[in-house]
Amino acid sequence: MLFNQYGSASTLYLYLLPFFAALMGGSVWAVEERSGRLLNMLPREGRSALLHTSMLSGFVLGGLGGVLPLIVNLLVSAVRTPQLSFIEGTSADENGMMLPKYVLIDSSSWAYPLYRMSQPLLIAVILLLVFVLSGAFALLALGSSLFIRRRHVELLVPFVASLVWWMLPALTGGLVPDEWSQIIFLNFSHWDAPGTAWRNYLGMLLMTVGMTVCSLVLARVKEARDVL
């Protein structure tokens, strides 16, 4: 099951999240352009309006593409275990020895306070976070599709960008924290070092805003170039 400490499904899902998002929403503009329908709509709607509409559609579709596997996983979990109950998250004693107990979300995780307060609220927050982040991945793919001529290559852009972002801590000698990657901050069930919660929050902000800004800049460049 996703977001479970015991297994690799969560990690695989988080690696593929950019691709899922791009697959659903990253080719909205490219599909219309390559089909020829875009040329028919341009005189009536205008390039700027069409571009903004495509980006909005891409964001929503990308968000759905990223969050649907999680929703399916939650539905399966609800069928198998049809109740929500709080599971105390202390996984080690005061000496650092691991306790022989099942822990769903470690008490050191950035998500644990929210989990302790309300499990349904945590689910809603995670769904919203995944939706917004997936939408940003789709926007990055859509923005790159404005300049990529080869079919479907834009689907790989957010995936590659995500991997590079994830490898930045190693590439920079630790100057960039691990927690800035969605592969780390969305894998919230695991142990976090004390005092590092803010890095997860900053990573969420940097990834979402950064990809959105990049896509908007690419769209603006496309508009300016077409005018010229």
Rank of each mutant, 00 (worst) to 15 (best):
L64A: 15
L122P: 00
G58M: 05
L16R: 09
L50H: 06
S162R: 02
V221W: 13
S181F: 02
L206Y: 02
N200I: 05
W180N: 00
L186C: 07
V221E: 09
V60R: 09
A136R: 00
I71F: 15
F3N: 00
L61D: 03
S144I: 02
W180R: 02
P113T: 00
L146T: 08
S108E: 04
P18W: 00
Q5R: 10
G210N: 04
G173V: 10
I123L: 13
D178S: 13
T11P: 01
F20N: 01
F86P: 07
F86A: 06
F137N: 03
A92R: 14
L50M: 14
S85K: 06
G135L: 04
P82C: 06
L205W: 06
P100M: 03
N187L: 08
L228W: 11
E154V: 06
A197K: 10
V60S: 10
L38W: 12
G65R: 06
G135R: 01
V164W: 04
W165C: 01
S77R: 14
S189P: 09
S10A: 14
A219G: 15
A224E: 13
M97I: 09
N187A: 12
M207F: 12
A21F: 10
M167R: 11
Y6W: 13
R199W: 05
V79T: 12
R149T: 07
T208I: 15
G66Y: 07
E179I: 00
N95G: 14
G195P: 03
A136W: 00
L61T: 07
Q119A: 06
A141C: 10
V132K: 02
G174F: 08
L23V: 11
F147S: 07
H152Q: 09
T11S: 13
A197C: 05
Q5G: 14
N73E: 15
R220A: 12
R44V: 15
F86W: 05
W166E: 09
T212D: 02
L140A: 06
L206W: 03
T212M: 10
L122G: 00
I71D: 06
T81W: 14
P158A: 02
S144R: 04
L205V: 12
A111T: 00
Q5C: 05
S10Q: 08
R37W: 12
V132F: 03
P82L: 06
W191K: 14
G63S: 07
